[in-house]
Simulated scan of single mutants.
Amino acid sequence: MQDLFGHAGIVEPPRQAIAEGAVLLRGRALAEEANLLAALDAVVVAAPFRHMVTPGGFTMSVAMTNCGTAGWVTDRRGYRYQSGDPLSGKPWPAMPEIFFRLATEAAAEAGFPGFAPDACLINRYEPGAKMSPHQDKDERDFGQPIVSVSLGLPATFQFGGLSRSDKMTKVALEHGDVVAWGGPARLAYHGVLALKDGEHPLLGRKRINLTFRRV
């Protein structure tokens, strides 16, 4: 496995290639952290985190919610996007302007100008929670990139190829890091290893991941 670790005593460039079509922007969200966290709190009040169930009946270790005109959900009926929160029956909260601006600017910096996300899946990882390698393929237009923002505890991100059996690159992500991928990497398998315990000064014992998509 190839490793891309950059915070422990090694100075890394702010823009770092993970694979063809995949870019890591280290610390890109730090300047906006206060506004991002305030906007996040407002979204979660309107649409609380919940542990969704996969079509196979497995309860996910990662808690989720959404904002935007559509939200990603999973239950025994399958994976899909829908305009309303199944818990409240109300529309998902609107995407905060600070979320939209960060996603579009980061995408452009990574080489994907013109990205206009309409959905943000928000994941909450607590110690032990993980995300198995998967493809983001429930969207209609694979010509649009994915933008992922990390907040809170550090995590190990895995990024592979177009086949589940391809070798995975391990990337250390910390608070404020942003990853964007598209083009030849748009359908790459990716995941997150089990979160290690720790205490973040702003978010405590958890990691929040904002994942922006164009549905």
Rank of each mutant, 00 (worst) to 15 (best):
Met1Asp: 05
Gln2Asp: 11
Gln2Val: 13
Gln2Tyr: 09
Leu4Arg: 06
Leu4His: 04
Phe5Pro: 01
His7Cys: 05
Gly9Thr: 08
Val11Lys: 09
Val11Pro: 00
Glu12Cys: 13
Ile18Gly: 08
Ile18Met: 06
Ala19Pro: 01
Arg26Phe: 07
Arg26Gly: 09
Arg26Leu: 10
Gly27Ile: 10
Arg28Ile: 06
Ala31Met: 06
Glu33Val: 14
Ala38Asp: 13
Ala38Phe: 10
Leu40Lys: 01
Asp41Ile: 06
Ala42Lys: 07
Val43Lys: 01
Val44Cys: 09
Val44His: 01
Phe49Val: 09
Arg50Cys: 13
His51Ala: 10
Val53Cys: 10
Thr54Met: 03
Thr54Phe: 00
Thr54Leu: 02
Pro55Tyr: 04
Gly57Cys: 09
Gly57Leu: 12
Phe58Tyr: 15
Thr59Gln: 15
Thr59Ser: 11
Ser61Met: 06
Val62Pro: 02
Ala63Cys: 04
Ala63Phe: 03
Met64Arg: 03
Thr65Glu: 11
Asn66Pro: 01
Cys67Thr: 02
Thr69Arg: 01
Ala70Asn: 07
Gly71Glu: 00
Trp72Ile: 06
Trp72Thr: 05
Asp75Pro: 08
Asp75Tyr: 12
Arg76Lys: 09
Gly78Pro: 02
Gly78Tyr: 08
Tyr79Asn: 04
Tyr81Asp: 02
Leu87Glu: 15
Lys90Tyr: 09
Pro91Thr: 11
Trp92Cys: 02
Ala94Cys: 07
Ala94Lys: 11
Met95Asp: 02
Pro96Ser: 12
Phe99Asp: 08
Arg101Val: 14
Leu102Phe: 04
Glu105Arg: 13
Ala108His: 05
Ala108Phe: 14
Ala108Asp: 14
Ala110Thr: 05
Ala110Phe: 02
Pro113Asp: 10
Gly114Met: 05
Ala116Val: 14
Ala119Thr: 15
Leu121Lys: 03
Ile122Leu: 04
Asn123Ile: 03
Pro127His: 11
Ala129Asn: 06
Lys130Tyr: 13
Pro133Ala: 13
Gln135Gly: 05
Asp136Gln: 00
Lys137Cys: 15
Lys137His: 10
Asp138Ser: 08
Asp141Pro: 02
Asp141Glu: 11
Asp141Cys: 04
Phe142Ala: 09
Gly143Val: 08
Pro145Cys: 08
Val149Pro: 03
Val149Trp: 01
Val149Asp: 04
Ser150Trp: 09
Leu151Cys: 03
Gly152Pro: 02
Pro154Asn: 07
Ala155Cys: 14
Ala155Val: 09
Thr156Cys: 10
Gln158Gly: 14
Gly160Ile: 11
Leu162Ala: 14
Leu162Gly: 10
Ser165Ala: 15
Ser165Asn: 14
Lys170Leu: 12
Val171Gly: 05
Leu173Phe: 08
His175Asn: 15
Gly176Asp: 11
Val178Cys: 04
Gly182Thr: 11
Gly183Ala: 15
Gly183Met: 09
Ala185Val: 03
Arg186Asn: 14
Arg186Pro: 15
Ala188Gln: 02
Ala188Arg: 03
Tyr189Lys: 03
Tyr189Thr: 10
Val192Asn: 12
Val192Glu: 07
Val192Ala: 05
Leu193Ser: 13
Leu195Ala: 07
Leu195Met: 15
Lys196Leu: 14
Lys196Phe: 04
Asp197Gln: 13
Asp197Trp: 06
Glu199Cys: 06
Glu199Thr: 07
His200Trp: 07
His200Ile: 12
Pro201Asn: 10
Leu202Tyr: 05
Leu203Gln: 12
Gly204Leu: 13
Arg205His: 14
Lys206Ala: 14
Lys206Arg: 15
Ile208Asp: 00
Leu210Tyr: 00
Thr211Leu: 00
Thr211Gln: 00
Val215Leu: 08
